[in-house]
Design a protein around this nucleic acid. Structure first.
Lengths: 149, 149
DNA sequence: TCGAATCGTAATAATTGAAGTTACATGAAA
DNA sequence: TTTCATGTAACTTCAATTATTACGATTCGA
């Protein structure tokens, strides 16, 4: 299966927006992420629906962050994207009649549910502000290394 | 993408084999799982490579379990299948130059790694014998309910 | 007001990876 | 020696994401 990279994509876009004054166009964001403006609009549209970003048409239009960076968690973004399936591994048949298969599903489902709960927990504990901080740290380190050499 | 259901599939097959005396053919297992004998051979072949099952050709041939049910964990099976990717969600670009994207990847990777570790831990703690027990429990319950009504 | 810039969105194609299928070779048992 | 079974390569189908094309609807600025 092809992996869903939209969460990674929106985070990349949102951080660029956070580092930038004024709106960024779909075109600009698309170049930044090596993709197509329509893809950007599709994804950002979902975030607009839940109030995380705003869009404006026409000259000087584009996308801006509409929420406090400290208040937006990865979990909210995951939800805004429609809570896509987390796992690439799954049961062959979700509603089997066979008791053997039901037993297998039950045990696997438990394990996956636990892992997903942990992942979502982690997502809930990370905000856009945290990511911005992580970026600042890396940026400072990068500048220091550049200066030294 | 389509989800990888091979783990679920082999477990289903192995439990049927555990409940049955003598070898089962790919054809029988395939019917049991609503699939094609070639698919069964492909998957079971990987388990044979690590000694979990044996195969025999010709009349009276087929697949048999070659290991102690208590000694085979879900984790071993996952490994035998080549440790397929666990998540359907991933980074857009695994080796980005952009520092922003690197920051995003780093944080996401941490979260995914933790969730995967938990999942594999769970897999390690479940044996085929455990699954057989779970089946026995469900089977007994099913019979009891059948008798009552 | 006009026109260019920008989003909004539908429709469709490309891409990717799993699963399914066909075909045939190999080997073992009756 | 015939039949039944695995072994495997090659190819097709299927499902899901992502990319692209096309065009409509707004908004700003000259």
């Amino acid at each position: 299966m092809k992996r869903d990279s939209r969460l990674s994509s929106v985070l990349h876009a949102l951080l660029h927006m956070a580092e930038h004054d004024g709106p960024l166009t779909s075109e600009t964001l698309a170049q930044c992420m090596n993709t197509n403006p329509v893809v950007v609009r599709r994804i950002m549209g979902l975030l607009r629906d839940v109030g995380i970003v705003r869009s404006a048409k026409g000259h000087t239009g584009g996308w801006t962050i509409a929420a406090d960076l400290k208040a937006v968690t990865l979990r909210q973004l995951h939800e805004a994207l429609g809570e896509p399936a987390v796992f690439a591994i799954g049961n062959r048949n979700e509603v089997p009649e066979c008791l053997v298969e039901q037993s297998v599903n039950s045990v696997l489902d438990d394990a996956f549910a636990e892992a997903e709960a942990l992942l979502l927990q982690r997502f809930q504990n990370v905000t856009l502000a945290d990511l911005a901080t992580e970026f600042t740290r890396r940026h400072a380190k990068w500048r220091a290394e550049r200066t030294n050499s």
